[in-house]
């Protein structure tokens, strides 16, 4: 990233880092901020597939849930090191992602989406019915992990800064990736897969690569979740969560990286706030999302264009 392009991101990062110092950021808002930034980061990971490669995954919740279970299993057994949890999550999610990517990338369009969905449902069902992992109730009552002995991630503020660091690193990784030759090939595949193949690119290998990278970033996000929530349940892998991630990308702005972060945070906060006031909150959320899709096809991030337009000048 060039310094000219990266400084706005640094400013936003600094602003987010300063938020907990403001008086309105209670412990509750820090935890809500955790969820908002976490799902924003996960939506950004999905954007690598959807926005840059043109692949719609209906199974991203499985990567998230597997990451969560990887950490939860260790925490339950007294392994409290965050790094070991993240390492185990990379291993588990990476292996699963390789299998899914190998089979799913042999197909295009709706068939790719369906394969990711089917794989995710298999994983969901496995955890749902396996009592070793707590069955439908999952693994609950988990202790907080530690960064190193003596520094447990056990307060809302520490959790907030942890997720902010994860978001910053994930964003930097995604930005580097989409700006690289690899990222440009992904865009070529999105625009015309056959032409990319005729140019000599091994399209399936590129698609597998981006699938695994996106899955790993999602899985790492999932691995951070049990430390904040103290549980991992099969619900985290449900297809509805995958659907919500797709919605986050769409309302944020496809193929922008920043947009899905905003979309994810917006969705989580909207869901949280509206559900406190209305029983049938998903109807309200649905109407808001329909309005965004209809009137803001570039998503929330597309709003910036309104501000960057030059002032209107009268012509003679």
């Amino acid at each position: 990233m060039s310094s000219a392009r990266s400084w706005p991101a640094l400013v936003v990062l600094a602003a987010l880092a300063a938020l907990p110092l403001t008086p309105f950021m209670t412990k509750y808002y820090m935890l809500l901020g955790f969820d908002a930034l976490l799902f924003g980061a996960v939506a950004m990971s999905l954007d690598l597939l959807m926005g840059y490669t043109g692949l719609v995954s209906f199974g991203h919740a499985a990567f998230f849930g597997l990451g969560a279970y990887a950490t939860a299993v260790l925490l339950e057994r007294g392994v409290l090191s965050l790094w070991l949890g993240l390492g185990f999550a990379v291993l588990v999610v990476g292996l699963y992602a390789l299998i899914v990517a190998y089979f799913a990338t042999t197909r295009r369009g709706i068939y790719f989406a369906l394969l990711t969905l089917v794989f995710a449902e298999v994983v969901y069902t496995f955890f749902r019915y396996t009592q070793t992992f707590g069955g439908s109730d999952g693994i609950q009552g988990l202790p907080a992990p530690y960064l190193w002995p003596g520094l447990a991630i056990d307060t809302p503020a520490r959790n907030y800064y942890l997720i902010l660091a994860y978001l910053a690193l994930a964003y930097a990784a995604c930005r580097v990736l989409v700006g690289s030759h690899f990222g440009r090939v992904l865009v070529a595949i999105r625009e015309n897969e056959d032409r990319a193949r005729f140019l000599g690119y091994n399209v399936q290998r590129y698609k597998m690569g981006v699938c695994v990278i996106s899955a790993l970033l999602t899985g790492l996000g999932g691995a951070l979740y049990p430390g904040r929530a103290a549980y991992a349940t099969p619900d985290l892998m449900l297809w509805t969560v995958s659907g919500e991630l797709i919605i986050m990308v769409m309302i944020g702005g496809l193929g922008t990286l920043v947009g899905p972060v905003i979309g994810g945070a917006f969705f989580i906060i909207l869901q949280e706030k509206v559900s406190s006031y209305v029983d049938w909150y998903f109807i309200v959320i649905g109407l808001v999302l329909i309005a965004i899709v209809l009137f803001m096809p570039r998503g929330l991030f597309g709003l910036r264009r309104l501000l960057t337009l030059r002032p209107w000048r009268a012509t003679a």
Partner: peptide, 23 residues
């Protein structure tokens, strides 16, 4: 670029901070 960063800041602030208005 100035507008972009300003907007990004506003969005980030609105995302977390704006919710206090509903408290």
């Amino acid at each position: 670029m100035r507008f972009k960063s300003l907007l990004a800041l506003i969005l980030a602030g609105a995302v977390i901070g704006g919710t206090t208005a509903l408290a």
